[in-house]
Design a protein around this nucleic acid. Structure first.
Lengths: 345, 345
DNA sequence: CCTTAGCACTCAACCCTGACGAGTGCTAAA
DNA sequence: TTTAGCACTCGTCAGGGTTGAGTGCTAAGG
């Protein structure tokens, strides 16, 4: 991001008022309507200021005789320097909290609930990724015979994530033998992650070739799991976009829905986000995604325990109420973190 | 459905031509354009026939000087008596088949792939429910200690469906004890469904109260699973609606998306469908769902093995090409059935 | 009796026009 | 430096005329 043009006190106040007005009404805002809010100056003075704000690129005029609309850059300035975040109102808290009052065991269930809750709380499309823990650890494993050449691996990971995968068997093997191997492996691998397990196969002698082969396959599968973890993206609330005037244009809507349904694009976007600083707001073209030129993303992480973290956030119109959305995303993130942490036991 | 008004040969031919034209163009079709297709009669003759077809309710005139559009009833007559189903073109087969070339283990993965494939093949919103088998049988179970008051039940069901659920422990129990109980239960319950298991707890004496308690909870959970099975509905392809002219109206789009995102409504609809006769087509208001008055559903079952069946189908505009969509839904259903059956081993 | 050419009629869609008004930029005075 | 005043721009909206697709009816012809 390039250095923002500095603004004096009055210009800041006016820019802030433009953003507030436009967010509320969705209509380009003119000097007259600003003059009633900012009674200190006349409409003519404000007009002059608006002209310079347009010159430096913070405001845009849709056409000559229209009011001003904040540009992406204008929103950026607003978000970085002017915005006063609002508390999450009681009404919203009371809407969100019940979702987390039920206590499902599976992390996936919690995430699905979180997506619904956030979509409702922020009146936008919600996005949630599964909690990523680099090198998630094994809590328990089991092997179930499928047929002569395949066995099903059932892995219980930290956070009660359950993963299954078919493993190939080099020779027909009874369920009782598989159970024995599973018990043996459990004694060794519990509490280890993929990296921690990588040396284990070497220590198994030739007398247990099958066991070693299975362990190798298990490690490979866990490595894949690690890599895949944040390609899973849940979303909800596309309907919330539809009652916004800017999406009355079906063209625009189409582009946005295409991006949302094509999870890969979102995954790329989310993994590109820099979430070390609490919350990341991507405004309009900042996302670099053509279809989202009129949309903004507000993303944050949720933490469950010290290590596990996932991403949660919303996708909405550039015109969204940033001062409200940010706190609400954080609020839900905190609830999700707590719920996932609880599920982790 | 009430008795349809019978039509003579010529009226049938004209109705069929109206449906074909309107499906292709999306514009109300007039007597002149029909006269070039049906060169046997003049536009005036056709006009007379159109008038009577309107009278009996098979056609609708948007306004006095517009052409005719098929009514729900008109489509119903077309679908029941006039439609010649088209073969699934090679191009579409080549588009669908690769999806099923990959072989994921989990049934859920297959369903997700199927949703994507069908949405593409039918150019509409696809809907897929999990395969329902009344009284699904247990293949394997395992118990993992979570903490002093909870244990995680991992159930592997027929078809390699894995389900997990936290169970309450009446007293602190070691993992080794839980593993012993799991082994004991496995010897008894494998191959049984919820109903088959219902008598078992009585036969366990007081010396194994914990085991009996856990078994009771497992049975309860399986019963819930049975009931929930077809509330899981995957969908894909909302974007396909957007390039259709009839959904240029955002109002309409909003209603449809609301129904699709609110899975409960779809679940009600699908479970109300009568799928014993191969394929069910619900046209417009026939679905009884207000938001879907301009949409049609084409649903069928897929079978994996003798007992398991799920529902798969599409939701699209009433104006969809029924002659193409039906066969394509069946084609994908057949592929899904085969894939799920294979995953079932 | 059925078919069809001809014709008057209807009505949405389109384009043009002028009035309106919201909003601007500029200028000159306070 | 601020602000009142004013000319100007331009999108929006309503009215009105034209166009053209499509109809229903009628009367003539097979």
């Amino acid at each position: 991001m390039q250095h923002p043009v500095p603004l004096d006190q009055r210009k800041q106040q006016i820019l802030k008022a433009v953003v507030a007005d436009y967010t509320r009404t969705g209509v380009p805002v003119g000097s007259a309507s600003l003059a009633v809010h900012l009674a200190t100056w006349s409409s003519a003075t404000i007009r002059n200021e608006l002209a310079t704000l347009s010159e430096v690129g913070y405001l845009i005029q849709p056409h000559t005789s229209a009011g001003r609309v904040p540009s992406d850059l204008g929103y950026r300035y607003y978000v970085d320097f002017l915005m006063d975040e609002e508390d999450v109102p009681q009404a919203v808290r009371r809407q969100v909290d019940p979702f987390f009052a039920m206590l499902p065991t599976g992390v996936e269930d919690i995430l699905e609930i979180a997506a619904t809750a956030l979509a409702q709380a922020a009146d936008a499309v919600s996005l949630v990724t599964a909690p990523r823990a680099l090198g998630v650890r094994v809590k328990h494993l089991d092997l179930v015979k499928l047929n002569d050449v395949q066995a099903l691996l059932v892995l219980v990971l930290e956070g009660n994530l359950v993963r299954q995968q078919a493993l190939r068997l080099t020779s027909p093997t009874d369920q009782s033998v598989l159970s024995g191997i599973a018990a043996g492996l459990n004694a060794v691998v519990v509490g280890l992650n993929a990296a921690g397990m990588s040396r284990l196969p070497e220590s198994i002698g030739d007398h247990a070739a099958l066991e070693r082969d299975l362990l190798t396959q298990i490690i490979a599968f866990m490595t894949v799991c690690d890599a895949q973890q944040d390609t899973l993206i849940l979303h909800d609330g596309v309907r919330n976009l539809l009652h916004q005037p800017e999406f009355g244009d079906v063209e625009l809507l189409q582009q946005v829905i295409e991006v949302v349904e094509e999870e890969r694009m979102l995954a790329a976007l989310i993994s590109a986000a820099d979430l070390d600083h609490g919350i990341q707001i991507m405004i309009g073209r900042e996302s670099g995604m053509a279809g989202l030129s009129r949309c903004s993303l507000v993303l944050t992480t949720y933490r469950a325990g010290a290590e596990r973290r996932g991403t949660i956030g919303v996708l909405g119109s550039t015109r969204m109420a940033y001062a409200q959305v940010g706190p609400r995303v954080r609020y839900v993130a905190q609830r999700v973190g707590r719920a996932v942490g609880r599920a982790l036991s």
